[in-house]
């Protein structure tokens, strides 16, 4: 058989006597249309993805009580947000939950990742499966499970300690943090395990060869090199915690209102320029986080 290659970027083929190729025109027509369709699909996809968000941002500057009727430009909705105590306190609650749950989950997730990648132990496969479950199980199911669990556990504690009803333990920020750690451990562990797996083990051997014991090897060689992975995991955990609505919704209680909980309450009722403004701010926060994660990833490469 004669070996023939189509020239790059063109469909014209050298003609051969012993090999059949489909007629050139049909092929190139198909390809041209295929390329156009791909391009159109791309344009459509990005309009679909971005138009709603852009509309939101634009109308957050709309000087009208009626959310969707353009009356002119204003910053007043942002001003109102800043003087809204409920929103400000919800925002700080969100930050507290995200920071604390990220720190705990990153620590535990990294430790788990090292144990999974560097040790062999009984039931390792089983534990591996359990570790993936919080990522796969729909958040609503995890939410109601934690709701049931905290209700029972707090009830037991309150009964055991014979706490009067006014000082009894209730769900709140603490239960939310516990819940966020529970799903974030898995996400951190998955990210860190990837960077441990990509890690060149000869580097650890080299350190030991040069006289470093296991602990020094870990501290001086392994840890600095998987740091981008750990930070990436932490950033993912932070974002997930900051964005989480469903699990927070089922595990929170009095005094435990986070920003998504507060925003959900408003969204559910109506549309308004204030919500557009909060949404725009949350959007900005997300963009900052994506840029941070991308920068980290570039550094890892």
């Amino acid at each position: 058989m004669t070996v023939q290659h189509a020239q790059e970027g063109s469909l014209t083929r050298p003609t051969t006597t012993d090999t059949y190729y489909p007629p050139q025109k049909a092929g190139s027509l198909l390809l041209t249309w295929g390329k156009r369709l791909l391009w159109a699909n791309m344009i459509f996809s990005f309009i679909f993805l971005y138009a709603p968000i852009l509309v939101l941002v634009v109308f957050s500057f709309n000087d009208s009580r009626f959310a969707a009727k353009w009356e002119g430009f204003t910053f007043k909705w942002y001003g109102e947000l800043l003087s809204n105590d409920a929103i400000i306190s919800a925002f700080w609650n969100s930050i507290v939950v995200a920071v604390l749950s990220t720190i705990i989950a990153t620590l535990l997730g990294t430790m788990t990742a090292i144990a999974m990648e560097r040790f062999r132990f009984p039931f390792r496969k089983t534990y591996d499966g359990i570790l993936y479950l919080p990522v796969i199980v729909p958040d609503i199911v995890m939410g109601i499970a934690l709701l049931a669990f905290f209700a029972l556990a707090l009830d037991w504690i309150n009964t055991a300690l014979a706490l009067p009803s006014d000082s009894a333990l209730r769900p709140g920020l603490t239960t939310v943090i516990i819940a966020h750690v529970a799903f974030n451990i898995s996400f951190v562990a998955i990210v860190v395990r990837t960077s441990l797996r990509d890690f060149n083990k000869a580097l650890e051997e080299a350190a030991q060869d040069l006289g470093a014991n296991e602990w020094i090897t870990f501290r001086r060689v392994t840890l600095p090199l998987i740091m981008p992975g750990i930070l990436g995991g932490a950033l993912l955990a932070f974002t997930l915690s900051l964005d989480d609505f469903v699990i927070t919704f089922f595990t929170t209680g009095p005094g435990g209102t986070t920003l998504p909980i507060d925003v959900f309450g408003r969204i559910r009722r109506t549309i308004s320029p204030e919500i557009n403004a909060i949404s725009t701010l949350m959007l900005m926060m997300s963009i900052v986080l994506v840029i941070a994660s991308q920068t980290l990833q570039r550094r890892r490469e």
Partner: peptide, 24 residues
Amino acid sequence: MIPFWTNFLVRTYAWKFILNNNGL
């Protein structure tokens, strides 16, 4: 990636803003 990392509530609300009875 940007929508991937963007708050899900916000993105859902964006459609409510467009589709609501007094929406866009």
